[in-house]
Write a protein that binds this DNA or RNA. Structure first.
Lengths: 336, 336
DNA sequence: TTGAAAGCGCTAACAG
DNA sequence: CTGTTAGCGCTTTCAA
């Protein structure tokens, strides 16, 4: 704080730095000049230390996920918890057991009752949940959604992936590894799922840009069920449509792989899927899946909590109200 | 520091935390127990603040790079500089103008004379440079190499990429987009270059694992020269070998692209290359390059300096003596 | 072998 | 509107 030698006190410097009111505008300008001159840079460690607050609680509310999604998001939340401990911020983690909006709303109410000052949430985009979130935002509690957005909720930010882009990448990869003439099977869980619909749409968009006619691919819905997927894919592989490649927009990759193995087709079938779960990675190693398009679930656990903390501690809002993370392409040789 | 309530003073706690001597072993155990019980976690901000040192200088020494490599590494160094300012650490940046080891050695001497306490360096792996580095390491100045390692230098760590793996990824991608029967051209600058040799080796290894016979590919050296590359590639494309795909292990991708455009071949030629420079990215967008395998040059500027700082400030050595970064695959749809 | 105290740069609360 | 002051948690130094 040598800058203070410039005539004014430490406190005034601080007010200028933070654009706070109650500073004579001449002095403000003078301080700004001097700061620039000695190109002042704040010490983040010192700031963090001084900003320590008293026992703030932030909530993280998850759907009834299992497996890969759950693990990765929890890892992110855990790291956020560790990092925010330094600020005396506690993370309250809650997970829904069902898919019912009512359960979710109850959990939100319970968290509010515990005095949380912000919430990171992934839940269904239903009207009841929208309204609940909107009301707590009105009450001054910031909300950040992740993985799938919730409309009309007044949330501060959405942290997730660009589903359309994910689908486009799928088409780009598929088109490269597919013969010029060949039929592609596009498997999704349910086109009423926003996520699956978007991926399929992105896929088809890019596929057509790349010169693949709409009559060269077929979309099939399998409800995210292993057995349904196995059956439908088997039918297509045995059928007359001569499937040359399969794009899996959903999670039932294992069902699809089973169908392929049972079909005893001599030629390897190009197969592109999403999400780097350990079973998908195994399929890569095995050589049956060509590419996995990876969304960073870890980040989706970490960032929302950090955003809320930033807002609470420093009043800093995220730059954009949608935060897409970089999408990675994984093949058998760049697993890690 | 509530832990101190446990009978002993703050100082003793600190000695225990850092495994320092001069602590009664009963007390040490007691403190350890209490720490565990209240699962103590250190506050990094506070530690950083207290550890501020007085005007340490660290050097970063670069080869005579231009363009993409230079820019990205400089960006990393710049960020390290900002981050380390908080610790009163200054980064002295030097760049060689020639490729002569003598120039490099002179620069090292000059930096030593300026009182640097560590050095991050990318230079040729010559005996003269090895010896020079070894002598300064002996003198207690830590050395971290990046991008290309320097053997027998006694360096603390090497930060770079796994060249063999990069080549293997190239083969994996190429094999997927190549027809079953087809000849591949492998272009490198010079097989005496460690980097190019390793990539080519990794490529060939994986290519053979994937069932591509050695007589289905041809390796050609073009000295990293645009015009030589253009000519040689043109010859091969016009020749009788019927080239179906090209793997560029070196930087002369523009020369190769020119040759392809001039060849007026109707069918798109599968093309895989390295390093996400802006011109390579343009080729992706244009659709002439299929995949770019990206090494994170930014990280190679950032990490070495942070490692040296960690050692100097906290005595913390890197966990491994080689630090490979994750390798990304870039196609036209996941540029960013 | 231990305890006590100063200070790292910054913020917030209070006093003028 | 401005200056002063008391810490934030930790390390280090000096004294006991």
């Amino acid at each position: 704080m040598i800058a203070k030698k410039a005539g004014v006190s430490r406190g005034t410097i601080d007010r200028v730095l933070h654009n706070r009111p109650n500073v004579n505008s001449e002095k403000r300008q003078k301080v700004l000049d001097i700061l620039k001159e000695m190109d002042y840079a704040p010490n983040f460690a010192a700031r963090a230390l001084a900003l320590k607050v008293k026992d703030i609680k932030i909530a993280a509310l998850l759907p009834n996920w299992t497996g890969y999604f759950k693990e990765e998001v929890l890892r992110g939340i855990e790291d956020a918890t560790q990092e925010l401990r330094n600020y005396n911020i506690d993370i309250l983690l809650e997970r829904c057991k069902t898919e019912q909006p009512q359960e979710c709303i109850k959990k939100i109410d319970a968290l509010i009752a515990k005095g949380i000052r912000g919430i990171a949430i992934c839940a269904k985009d239903t009207i009841s949940i929208q309204k609940k979130l909107f009301s707590i935002v009105q009450a001054g509690i910031p909300v950040v959604t992740f993985n799938s957005d919730i409309s009309h909720s007044g949330r501060l930010c959405f942290v997730g992936m660009d589903l359309i882009k994910e689908g486009r990448i799928g088409a780009e990869l598929m088109s490269k590894i597919l013969p010029a003439k060949g039929r592609t099977l596009i498997v999704c869980g349910n086109l009423e799922f926003y996520a699956h619909k978007s991926r399929v749409q992105g896929f088809c968009d890019r596929f057509q840009e790349l010169g693949r006619q709409p009559n060269t691919y077929t979309v099939v819905e399998t409800n995210n069920e292993h057995e349904t997927t196995r059956q439908r894919v088997s039918e297509y592989l045995a059928g007359k449509e001569d499937i040359k490649g399969i794009y899996m927009a959903n999670e039932s990759v294992a069902g699809c792989v089973e169908a392929i193995k049972q079909s005893h087709i001599a030629k390897k079938i190009p197969l592109v899927c999403h999400d780097a779960s350990s079973s998908h990675i195994d399929f890569l190693r095995e050589g049956i899946v060509d590419f996995v398009i990876e969304q960073n679930m870890y980040r989706q656990g970490l960032e929302p909590l950090k955003m809320i903390a930033d807002l609470l501690i420093e009043g800093k809002r995220p730059e954009k109200d949608i935060d897409y993370s970089r999408i990675h392409i994984v093949c058998a040789e760049n697993i890690d």
